[in-house]
Design a protein around this nucleic acid. Structure first.
Length: 419
DNA sequence: TCTGGGGTCCTAGGACCC
DNA sequence: TCTGGGGTCCTAGGACCC
């Protein structure tokens, strides 16, 4: 009788590990990677963690630690990370036949083994193959549900790199695992659970079911199922297109000007619709968001409004027309805005758009050919080659002065061994 | 001075209908 | 005096994740 298990592969400190692939001098040295605009810390090496750099910390708060300890610093280089990620996934796919990528650095899979020992050795084998063929360190975990697999991989990161928990070995652990270590329990839920006297996984499993449903909804009851080894989540291949595309960015300084917000929204629509076309989709809904600084004490934290489009489109001009109208509706004079963004939702494949029955709806622009010419030009000459913006956008240029070369995806940035 | 961006899913409550 | 109520659809906002 073989045991069916869910496995999870997780790349350790992924962005840092990608940087180290081409900078072996940084192995065993403290390294951090910053998020877009060099705003916050998004990845830390073990050494940087030990020096006290918290995850998600705004850079200005850790600048001193970075300087004093000579921590190596990188801006995010997603082109590189995506390429390394593709290599990891492809090797894993070759080994297992079917994997479900969950994020840029994680993938779930299913397998079965005769016992715990052979399951652990299978995970260790996969670890070895990935590390040899791609070169980034990984951890693996497995259990009877995805939530337990996730816990197993996280927990083992700093130990042997692979762990399997099910049956007795899992049940024995539940009294020691605090709920905030569990996937799906964030800050708010953990606090609320604590207030109800629930601190460990064992506490949660001992609570009456109707209480869980009343206090924590379907989310809570699924968690309970998962933690008692009854699978409530299935790893699913995302069928078809993603559901939404968003494009947002903070301003370096707050702005009260409508035209600045319009310029930003124009830019976001251009980029989001470009991506929409690149995946072959059309959007059935459109949302605009304007936000004040969430760290200031302004009452108005955010305004967001969404509309359903008369018919799904991917033409920048049409989307822009609606987006600017929404921006005007949301805009309030005298409010210091910090962030603007757009969301394209209800995405369907372009060839699945129903044919228009009424002539007048054709007045909506949806010219695929024109858009594809513009996309080509922008790819070739940069995003500002053809724009629909009436105002030059300002204050949004990316800071990424610490970006490493795209070693694996751009010929002119390839690693030189000899001049 | 400087506090990310891109996603998914769930839910409360409003609008509307009969 | 009593001042409907149940159902459905929609969306803004929240929580969480990486």
């Amino acid at each position: 009788m073989r045991v069916k298990l869910y496995g999870l592969l997780d790349c350790n400190n992924f962005f840092v590990s990608c940087e180290r692939l081409f900078r072996p001098d940084l192995v065993n040295q403290p390294v951090i990677v910053l998020g877009s605009n060099d705003g916050v810390v998004v990845s830390r090496s073990e050494e940087a963690k030990k020096l006290g750099v918290p995850m998600g910390a705004p850079f200005f708060k850790v600048r001193d630690i970075v300087k004093e300890n000579n921590i190596a610093l990188f801006s995010s280089n997603f082109e590189l990370y995506r390429d390394v990620s593709d290599r990891v996934m492809s090797v894993l796919n070759d080994e297992l036949g079917e994997v479900y990528q969950y994020s840029i650095d994680e993938a779930f899979f299913q397998f079965s083994e005769k016992d715990q020992i052979s399951a652990v050795s299978e995970l260790l084998r996969l670890k070895q193959v990935i590390e040899k063929k791609v070169g980034v360190p990984v951890s693996l975990g497995a259990g009877k549900t995805m939530t337990i697999a996730k816990y197993a991989s996280e927990n083992e990161k700093r130990k042997s790199g692979a762990a399997v928990f099910y049956g007795q070995s899992w049940q024995e652990l539940t009294a020691e695992i605090s709920l905030n270590e569990i996937w799906g329990i964030g800050g708010k839920t953990a606090t609320s659970m604590r207030e109800h006297g629930l601190n460990t996984v064992a506490d949660l499993l001992a609570a009456p079911e109707n209480f869980i449903v009343r206090e924590f909804g379907v989310h809570g009851s699924r968690l309970c199922a998962e933690l008692s080894e009854n699978a409530a989540h299935q790893p699913t291949e995302r069928k078809g297109l993603q559901k939404s595309i968003m494009h947002t960015r903070s301003f370096s300084k707050t702005t009260e000007s409508l035209s600045a917000l319009e310029a930003a929204v124009t830019y976001h629509i251009e980029r989001a619709s470009e991506e929409l076309r690149s995946i072959g989709g059309k959007a059935g809904s459109l949302g605009v968001q304007l936000q004040t600084n969430r760290y200031s004490d302004w009452l108005l934290q955010s305004g967001r409004q969404e509309i359903i489009l008369p018919t799904p489109v991917s033409d920048t001009r049409t989307l822009l027309c609606y987006a600017l109208a929404l921006t005007k509706v949301l805009y309030r004079r005298g409010i210091p805005y910090k962030k603007a963004g757009v969301v394209l939702g209800r995405i369907i494949p372009a060839d699945a758009v129903p044919v228009c029955l009424w002539e007048e709806e054709e007045s909506m622009n949806d010219d695929t050919q024109l858009m594809s010419v513009i996309d080509d030009l922008n790819t070739r000459w940069g995003n500002d080659a053809i724009t629909f913006g009436r105002v030059k956008r300002g204050g949004q240029l990316d800071h990424d002065q610490h970006r490493s070369p795209c070693y694996t995806t751009r010929w002119n940035e390839i690693r030189k061994i000899k001049n």
